[in-house]
Structure formats: structure tokens, C-alpha cells
Design a protein around this nucleic acid. Structure first.
Length: 804
RNA sequence: GCGAAAGUGGCGGAAUUGGCAGACGCGCUAGACUCAGGAUCUAGUGGUAGCAAUACCAUGGGGGUUCAAAUCCCCCCUUUCGCACCA
């Protein structure tokens, strides 16, 4: 019998599956649709990263499991090929992305993805750079625009000087460009935004009902950042002007000793006194130049007095209005009431500028007199007029209610989430399908003119002017207005790469339909996605955007659901020898080498064996040999074994087999792949100790390994004489009656310490078990000379004697 | 700074309605088969003591609850990951 040659076998079965279209689904007629989605890759020049393989394999194992359970599994694959990353790489190497990307995609698909043994349905491949795809990305933009969810505004935005483009808040977390790591600057620019904040409440509420990984839900909840408080309106002394602040602590209103507005606040010009003008202007200018990171790093509070005073609506107190960049323009009203006694930031500021600090909350309602630091805890009010002595929680809303009578206060809800800045001043993306006409204003490109093709340009290097590369192409820019027919100009920005990927899963099932983005019947049949698996690094980027787009499409009336993914699971991070893989450390695992040397089956199985899939794993090169040995043992079990027909009759072996089926079934359902593989190994170890083996045992073994090691499973399946494919044969059922052993081992403790075990029939009576336990030699010696005070029996598990 | 998760042999990791700690695998040790072994097979492998039976110790550290704690509670330490002036 020949030995296990993974090269021949894998080549053979991949060709066979492709030829017989084994894993292509009938999109229109599949009776039990199951949409199994994984995050599509960016086709880099370096090729598929082992992290991609880890992610895809975990998803594919799940898809294969569902397939064996009788579902029509649709598992598409595609390429997220637009974006700054490709473009920066192209500029660096001097190869145009239009040349580079198709070559990369070809390499990914033909040389790498097709070797993984996944059940990809290539009939539905998506490439975001294909005009046939981005036509619909542009169409989607226009739908959002028509629904009032896309708008332009001048706003302080994140500008990455290295990438020479603006970024969304999500791509500039921590003040650093997500792509290149540069510190981003704040620039005020006119940009397109998507009104994701329109769905803030729904994005948050739905988190309660969707089945997503906890850590992803938590990340989204934090990012949305709901807070409940009140808007309180202060009059400005000597001006016919009000300033509204947002606060979560109206109970501290009597302690407001000054007010702060952001440097970008609209009222800055109007309220600044003559005497303060120069100082204020200088401060505002300096604040504008600071990068986001600088603002955050500067622990020291800075600020200037405007010369104006506000009137506290609750007690008429006149308090100074300051400007400081510790108040953010983009959150709340861009203005705060400062309560230094009960807010740490206000406290710091008050100390620095010697502003008064008034205690209005204490534990008892009596003045504590300790003003050495801010106390943010709730308590009882003091120095608060009619509210003195009232508990914070009650006082909060009582004060707001009182203010409400004068129109000076109302409850308010704020979200941290900001609108999604969608424009990019770059080349490699779908042009924003808008036309600017002097007469007609902003006009969307008519559907029949889509796609707006990305023009071919030799020089695609951004010039940092704040204008996109496309602005240099006059032929592209100049256009006739679709409304009035006059001269007009195209929008020269391209859309954020995250828009391309925010709807790709809608497109997959409807590919290759050219007349619609998504066919209504097909979409109804296949969506929402049943299972989505991907990295948690996209928790607040991609996954938030997809939910927004889905909600928008729902409200536009194109779909009847408002959440894109029924289930989402975040896989863990794959590390190597305990530390993150990175090019600079030179510890990146190259998938190709392991596919060559050990085969896809060993590679897949090993990746899934490293640790709990949702927590990640620690790759070490030596470990894969152990998995290879396991598959070698499977091979020999089937090919070098005189297998008898049928199943064993031995009750113990049947118990092992059925318990293993049960364990693996449950583990695959919960993505506990590492323990599923371990259980299968245990079963094989047991079978190898038996004198005689059976064909039925081999059959079950192949079922259990098939999701992980599909090629060898199909090969041995065929060699055993079974028809068809192990990958598609129905998943084995287990008999619960056989999962229960007819003998049990009871641990016997004396005073909580293990002194022995007894083996006894599973249906033995408690008294018999206790008697047997006492009779056990070592137990008896520990009980000698003592009297038993208490006997504890945990059925099926353990006996504990408490003795004196 | 705030929040969350985690800390178990030489290593990756099992075990969580409290009930035999260390499954499975790597590595290591010994033996078998071999011209050879970085192949394969068999046996062993948490620590200390002992020829052994066995005993004691052991799940980051310290307390506690319990007949019984990796698991529950309190305090501390460490690591990782989020968020980071959001009023």
C-alpha cells in the first residue's frame, strides 16, 4: 500500500472538485441556504498571509461542517483591492495599481486560495476594483445621497500628511493613521459624510439582539458611546446670545464656576471682548495647528479668557467664559459648564488658572471642606439653594425640570459616534459619483452614466494640496451638468475603501447579474448572512459601516432586514512563539512553504489545533509535524489495516466512538476546533489499541476529520469503497444511550484528599458504592482508627468521607 | 487614567452548574526496528522524598467560604487587548 503523499492527493481532489463543481451552490433553487461569509482579503503583493489562512480555514471548517449537516452552503470569496494600501505600495514600487492588482489577485486566487481546500464558490467572486462592481458602489452612494444620508460639510477632519488624504475617525483612532502610522493633523475641509449618527440609537439597541462575539459588541457599544444628560442654556451677559452646554451632571450646576467653549466654537468671535481679542485669536490659531495626538498628550491644560460672562440660569451667578482645547468641538455642544469641585478635568483647569472651586456635593450633604481634588461620586447636594440636601440622582432631573420651565434646560442624549467621513483625496478608488454645477448645485450622476470610470493616469502621486489626484485630470473633471446641460465639474475625490467593503456581501449572491446590484429574490433567499467570521480589528470600522449600510438600505426599502449578519464570531490573533508576527521581526510564517512540505490538510488542521479559535493560537514550526503524524496514522489505519465490515460490538469502543461524535459535533458548532481535533486523536489512539478494527470505525473517523482535512478524507473515503465525497456525506449521528458508559470510575476522597478510585457498574446503588469505596485498600488505611462523620456522594463522580 | 479579558508542567493548551488538575499535541528520556534516523513503533514524562507501595507540595501572590476551589468571594501583582480630555 502506498504511503500518504499529500501532493498527489491534494492536486487530484482539487481538480476533481473543480471539475464536478462540487461546492458551487444553486443560488436560485437551493432548498436549505446557508450563507457562510469570511472577510475578503486585500490582495497584497506579498501574497496571502498566514493570518488570512487562519481566518479562512476557521470559517471554511464551519462551512464544511454545515455542508455535511445538509445545508446548501454558499461560501464566496473575493478581493478588497481598492484603497490606500495598494496605492501606496504601487507608488513605492513604481508599478501602477491597475497593473499590480490584477497580478496580485491572480496570484492569490490561483496559487494560494485554490490550494487551501476550501469550498469557495468562484462563480460569485467579487473584485471591488472591477467597474462592474464599483458601478454599484457608486450607485449605493447615490442611494444614500437621495435618502438624505450623504451630505457635504466643512468640518475639522483627520488629515494624514503621509497619505495626503483625510481619514474617518475610525481610521484615525488615537490620532494615528490606521494605514501608515503617521500622526494625523486636524484640517478644516469640505468633505462628504455619511450620516451614520442618524442610526446611533438603533446601532446601539440592536446590539442587544444580534448574536455576535461579546468583545465585538463591547467595542461597538464603547465606540457608539451613548450618554444621557441634559442641555442647559446660559445667557451671555451683555449680549443677545445664549450658550448651551451638555452635561451628564446637572446636579452639580450650582457648582459651575466658569464655562469653557472649544476653540472652534461658533460663538468665539461674537463674545470675545476687545481687550482679549489678540490673545484669543492667537490661542485659536495655535490650537488649530496642534495635531490630535499633541492635544491628547499635553496633560497641561491651556486656555484663555474671552472677557465674556455667562449667567447661570439656576442662581443667576455670573461666571467667566474661557476657551480651551480640552473641550472638543465635535462632541455635545462644544461648550461645557465647568464644575471644578466635581470634575477632574475642570479641577485641573481651575487650579491652573486660579478659578473658584465650590463644593456642591458631598457624601453627607455637609461641606467636607476638602478641596484638594475633585470628587466625582454622587452624594447629597449642598450650597444648592432649594436642592440642598437632595440626593444627586433625584436632584439631577429635578434641576433639569425646573430649568425646563424657563426653556433653559432639557434632557438630552449624546453619542460619541460621529458621521462617517467618506471622501478621500486619492486615486485608487471609485470616483464619488457627483457633479458640481454652478447653476444646479450638487447633482448625482444619472444611473445610466454609471459607472464613473476611474480614468487611467500615469502619475498618481498625491501632491498634498488637499485636492485629489483626479483634480489634475481636466478631461475627467470637466463634464456637462446632467440637469441643465451647462458646464460643470465632477467631484474629484474617491470614496473611502471601507465603502467598497461595506456592501460586498450583498453583491456576492447576485454576481454575475449586471442589471442590478442585488437581485431582490436572491437577496431575500440568502441574506442576512448566517455566519460571518473575521478579525476583531474591524469591530468599529468595517462592522459598524456594514450595519449602517444595511440599516440605510432597509429604510430605503430595498431589503426587509436591518442587520447584515445573524451571527458574527471574531477569531483570535495568530502569533508566533508568543509574539506578534511582523515583517520587521522577520518571524512571519509563509503559508506556501508549509502547503508544499506538509500539505493543506496538515496546515489547516494544525492551524485549528493551536488553541481556541476565538482566542487565537501560537504557531511554532515544529508543531505541525505532530499533526502530520496524526494524518499519517489515519492513513495507515485505513490502508494498512484488515478492516472487518460493520461496527464493533464491544460496548466500550462503541461508547468511545459515540462520545467522540458527540464531542466533535458540539465543538464544531462552538468553534472549539482544538478540542474537537484532540477528541478525534483520542478516538484514534483508542482504536489503535483494539485487536481488530472495523470499516465503520474508519468511516466515522473520516467524517470527523473531513472538515479539517478534506483531501485525505475524500481520498480514503474512495479507497474504502464509498461513493461520492466524505466532504459532502451526511454528518454522523450519535446515540445518546451509547455515550453513557456502563461502568463508572468513582474517585474516593478521605477528608477531601484523593485516596483511591473504585470501578463499578453504572447502575450500582449508592450503598454499594460507599461500601466499595470503604473497602478500597488505601481508603481503608486512611479511615482506620477514625469514625466517619459524614459521607458525601456525588453521583457518578466522587465519594468523600469526612472522618475524625 | 478608565474598561475588559487572561495568568495552569520545559512549551501550546485541556478541565468552569465547585467534585480524580495537567486531556490532546510539541519537546524530552529510555527501549525496539534500522547501514542510518531529524522516519516509525513501544514505554515514560508536574515537583520533592522513596527501591516501591505511597506521602507531601503544586493552577501568578496573599487571605476567605466549603466536606471539597484552577473554578466562588476579597486584596495585591503581572500580561494582553480596547478606549483614552466624550463633560
Amino acid at each position: 500500500m502506498s504511503s500518504y503523499d499529500h501532493r498527489d492527493i491534494e492536486r487530484k481532489w482539487q481538480a476533481e472538485w473543480e471539475k464536478t463543481r462540487a461546492f458551487n451552490v444553486d443560488i436560485d433553487h437551493a432548498p436549505r441556504p446557508f450563507y457562510n461569509l469570511m472577510m475578503f482579503p486585500y490582495p497584497s503583493a506579498e501574497g496571502l498571509h498566514v493570518g488570512n489562512v487562519y481566518a479562512f480555514t476557521g470559517s471554511d471548517v464551519y462551512g464544511r461542517f454545515k455542508l455535511k449537516q445538509g445545508f446548501d452552503v454558499f461560501e464566496p470569496m473575493g478581493f478588497d483591492a481598492f484603497g490606500i494600501h495598494s496605492e501606496n505600495f504601487a507608488i513605492k514600487t513604481g508599478t501602477h495599481p491597475a497593473k499590480l492588482i490584477p497580478a496580485n489577485i491572480h496570484n492569490f486566487r490561483e496559487n494560494q486560495l485554490k490550494r487551501l481546500g476550501a469550498i469557495f464558490d468562484w462563480d460569485h467572486e467579487v473584485d471591488t476594483t472591477d467597474p462592474a462592481y464599483y458601478k454599484w458602489t457608486q450607485w449605493l452612494f447615490i442611494q444614500l445621497y437621495k435618502a438624505g444620508l450623504a451630505y457635504q460639510k466643512d468640518a475639522p477632519v483627520n488629515w494624514c500628511p503621509h497619505c495626503a488624504t483625510v481619514l474617518s475617525d475610525e481610521q484615525a483612532e488615537g490620532g494615528v493613521c490606521e494605514r501608515c502610522g503617521s500622526v494625523v493633523e486636524t484640517r478644516v475641509m469640505r468633505q462628504w459624510f455619511f450620516k451614520i449618527t442618524h442610526y446611533a440609537a438603533k446601532l446601539l439597541e440592536n446590539l442587544e439582539t444580534i448574536d455576535w462575539s461579546d468583545k465585538t459588541v463591547t467595542a461597538q457599544r464603547t465606540w457608539i458611546g451613548k450618554s444621557e444628560g441634559a442641555n442647559i442654556t446660559f445667557a451671555v451677559d451683555g449680549h443677545d446670545l445664549d450658550l448651551t452646554v451638555y452635561t451628564t451632571r446637572p446636579d452639580t450646576l450650582f457648582g459651575a464656576t466658569y464655562m469653557v467653549i472649544a476653540p472652534e466654537h461658533d460663538a468665539v468671535g461674537a463674545i470675545t471682548s476687545q481687550a482679549q481679542q489678540a490673545e484669543v485669536a492667537a490661542y485659536v490659531e495655535a490650537a488649530g495647528k496642534k495635531t490630535k495626538a499633541e492635544r491628547q498628550e499635553d496633560k497641561d491644560k491651556t486656555g484663555v479668557f474671552t472677557g465674556a460672562f455667562a449667567i447661570n440660569p439656576v442662581n443667576g451667578a455670573k461666571i467667566p467664559i474661557w476657551i480651551s482645547d480640552y473641550v472638543l468641538a465635535g462632541y455635545g455642544t462644544g461648550a461645557i459648564m465647568a464644575v471644578p469641585a466635581h470634575d477632574t478635568r475642570d479641577f485641573e483647569f481651575a487650579k491652573k488658572f486660579d478659578l473658584p472651586i465650590v463644593e456642591v456635593i458631598s457624601e453627607t450633604g455637609e461641606a467636607s471642606g476638602d478641596l484638594s481634588e475633585a470628587t466625582t461620586a454622587y452624594g447629597k447636594l449642598l450650597n444648592s439653594g432649594e436642592f440642598s440636601g437632595v440626593e444627586s440622582e433625584a436632584a439631577k432631573w429635578a434641576i433639569v425640570e425646573k430649568l425646563g420651565k424657563d426653556g433653559r434646560g432639557e434632557k438630552a442624549v449624546q453619542y460619541r459616534l460621529r458621521d462617517w467621513c467618506i471622501s478621500r483625496q486619492r486615486y485608487w478608488g471609485p470616483p464619488i459619483p457627483m457633479i458640481h454645477c454652478e447653476k444646479c448645485g450638487v447633482v448625482p450622476v444619472p444611473d445610466e452614466d454609471l459607472p464613473v470610470l476611474l480614468p487611467e493616469m500615469d502619475d498618481i502621486t498625491p501632491d498634498g494640496s488637499g485636492l485629489s489626484v483626479l483634480a489634475r485630470n481636466e478631461e475627467f473633471v470637466n463634464v456637462t451638468c446632467p440637469v441643465c446641460g451647462g458646464a460643470a465639474k465632477r467631484d474629484t475625490d474617491v470614496n473611502d475603501n471601507f465603502l467598497d467593503s461595506a456592501w460586498y456581501f450583498f453583491r456576492y449572491p447576485s454576481v454575475p447579474r449586471a442589471d442590478v446590484a442585488m437581485d431582490p429574490a436572491i437577496t431575500k433567499k440568502w441574506l442576512p448572512v448566517d455566519m460571518y467570521i473575521g478579525g476583531n480589528e474591524h469591530a468599529v470600522l468595517h462592522l459598524m459601516y456594514t450595519r449602517f449600510v444595511t440599516m440605510a438600505l432597509h429604510d430605503i426599502g430595498l431589503i426587509d432586514f436591518d442587520e447584515p449578519f445573524k451571527t458574527f464570531r471574531a477569531h483570535g490573533l495568530l502569533v508566533k512563539d508568543g509574539s506578534k508576527m511582523s515583517k520587521s521581526k522577520g518571524n512571519v510564517v509563509n503559508p506556501d512553504a508549509f502547503l508544499d512540505d506538509y500539505g493543506a490538510d496538515s496546515f489547516r488542521t494544525y492551524l485549528m489545533f493551536l488553541g481556541p479559535y476565538e482566542q487565537g493560537g501560537d504557531w511554532r514550526d515544529a508543531g505541525i509535524a505532530g499533526i502530520r503524524r496524526f494524518l499519517d496514522r489515519v492513513w495507515r489505519f485505513v490502508t494498512e489495516n484488515d478492516l472487518a465490515d460493520g461496527m464493533p460490538q464491544d460496548r466500550e469502543t462503541l461508547g468511545v466512538i459515540h462520545r467522540t461524535i458527540k464531542k466533535v459535533t458540539e465543538d464544531l458548532g462552538s468553534l472549539s476546533y482544538n478540542t474537537a481535533i484532540a477528541a478525534t486523536m483520542e478516538m484514534l489512539n483508542h482504536l489503535n489499541k483494539e485487536e481488530r478494527n472495523f470499516k465503520g470505525e474508519a468511516e466515522i473517523l473520516l467524517h470527523l476529520i473531513a472538515p479539517f482535512a478534506p483531501h485525505i478524507a475524500d481520498e480514503l473515503w474512495t479507497q474504502l469503497g464509498f461513493e461520492g465525497s466524505a466532504g459532502k456525506a451526511p454528518w454522523p449521528a450519535y446515540d445518546p444511550a451509547l455515550c453513557v458508559s456502563d461502568r463508572m470510575t468513582i474517585a474516593v476522597q478521605v477528608m477531601g484528599k484523593l485516596r483511591g478510585t473504585v470501578e463499578i457498574d453504572a447502575d450500582a446503588a449508592k450503598d454499594d458504592i460507599l461500601a466499595a469505596a470503604k473497602a478500597e485498600e488505601n481508603v481503608a488505611s486512611h479511615l482506620a482508627g477514625k469514625s466517619i462523620v459524614k459521607e458525601i456522594y456525588v453521583p457518578g463522580k466522587l465519594v468523600n468521607f469526612v472522618a475524625k
